[in-house]
Amino acid sequence: MTWDANLLWQFDMLILLMMVICAVAALSLKGLVSSAVVTGAYSFFTCLMWTHMMAVDVAFTEAAVGAAVSTVIIVATAQYINPWSKD
């Protein structure tokens, strides 16, 4: 088996590691607004991952939907609830 130069697996592993860190951080942060922003960062790393997997259409959609609109509506909901969670 060989692998091509355009699929750098080291870069891939770095992005996946950042995604796992962002996912754990989004679930363990106490403040819900910071949790929402970390979710946006998670979506952005997902978008990078998909660009790296040659799925440009999917990455474009995720950059517009996941990183922008999702974050905005989560923050918009966070203004009506207690922004500090217990766990």
Binding site: D57, A68, V69
Partner: peptide, 17 residues
């Protein structure tokens, strides 16, 4: 090019947001 109805629609909606 990459793009289409979903992406264009979301970007247009994001301009109003």
């Amino acid at each position: 090019s990459p793009g289409g109805g979903f992406q264009g629609g979301v970007i247009f909606g994001a301009s109003f947001i």
